[in-house]
């Protein structure tokens, strides 16, 4: 039962005073079967009234409305999360024929709207030959294969700062950050009729794991008869207790840590910091 101390902080600077702005932070870990939020708190500087709102998928965000917005806004969020040490990959798959029958049934596709749809983040370019499930390959085996495939196809490039890159662009330069890995994998899975969703969250990073100091992104796919299972193509890992989920959605547009609507003419610069620390380790030392 690892317990994590999580902190997210951001600093927004604006080159000019703006009349009004609304900021929305989607940074609070969600509560589900594998994780529980023991404590959480946030502060904003300058002090501004806030409220918590749920998005279409039921995830909670914190919203602020600022009038005559100052040139600098700081936001800090802290949480203590208890993560269960369940192995989500310890499941019994259903027989292959049954699995295929479900995947190819109309109702399965209909029930999983919108996690089978394509847009600019998840549409595979026409000239790209997309990997397909092999005869006899189970959904789980295919997922593991694609997780590795995506990992090897792209090179991690932390100099990319645009979080909203089209898949087309990613496939052109074969580079990306975690969002791009996730979108690429979502696209391949959806082509193969496997419902797949974009996940944002925190990653308890060891030394060799990519995603330090940032909100991480990975993928959850629906295995017929089993449920939603997570894959991290950026690191070619499976989602386990090191992954603390914030939210899921169709793609990045449902899950950014910060959305801002700013009425004004100035430029906007954002810097942020994320840290995840495991409490138990500290106690043991």
């Amino acid at each position: 039962m690892p317990i994590y101390n999580i902190s997210y902080s951001t600093q927004n600077t604006y080159s000019a005073l703006s009349k009004e702005s609304v900021l929305e932070f989607l940074v609070s870990p969600t509560k589900n079967d594998t994780q529980e939020v023991l404590e959480s708190s946030f502060e904003i500087n300058p002090d501004t009234p806030s409220y918590v709102s749920k998005n279409v998928f039921g995830f909670e965000s914190i919203r602020f409305r600022l009038k005559n917005q100052p040139e600098k806004i700081e936001f800090k969020y802290n949480a203590i999360v208890d993560k269960k040490e369940i192995n989500p990959f310890n499941f019994l798959p259903i027989p292959y024929e049954e699995e295929m029958a479900i995947i190819h049934s109309d109702s399965f596709g209909i029930d999983h709207f919108p996690f089978l749809s394509f847009d600019k983040y998840t549409r595979i370019p026409a000239d790209y030959s997309c990997p397909v499930m092999q005869e006899g390959e189970s959904v789980y085996d295919f997922l593991k294969r694609i997780n590795q495939f995506v990992n090897t196809q792209l090179t991690y490039d932390s100099s990319i700062t645009d979080a909203y890159r089209k898949l087309e662009t990613t496939l052109l330069d074969r580079k990306g950050v975690c969002q791009d890995y996730a979108h690429f994998m979502l696209a391949i899975l959806r082509v193969n009729k496997i419902p797949a969703r974009y996940v944002s969250g925190y990653l308890n990073q060891g030394d060799s794991i990519i995603g330090a100091g940032a909100i991480h992104a990975w993928v959850q796919a629906k295995i017929p008869g089993v449920g939603w299972i997570g894959f991290d193509p950026t690191n070619n890992l499976l989602e386990d207790f090191h992954y603390i989920k914030i939210s899921h959605g169709v793609d990045i547009s449902d899950c950014p840590a910060l959305k801002g609507v700013i009425k004004g003419t100035g430029e906007n610069y954002t810097s942020y910091n994320v840290s995840v620390k495991e409490q138990i380790k500290e106690v043991n030392q």
């Binding site: 609304v22 929305e24 709102s53 998005n55 279409v56 959305k259 609507v261 009425k263």
Partner: peptide, 16 residues
């Protein structure tokens, strides 16, 4: 906040 982020016609937070 829910649809086109560049919209200046709408109301942020209306959909929730």
């Amino acid at each position: 906040l829910a649809f086109r982020p560049d919209s200046v016609l709408g109301v942020p937070g209306l959909m929730s």
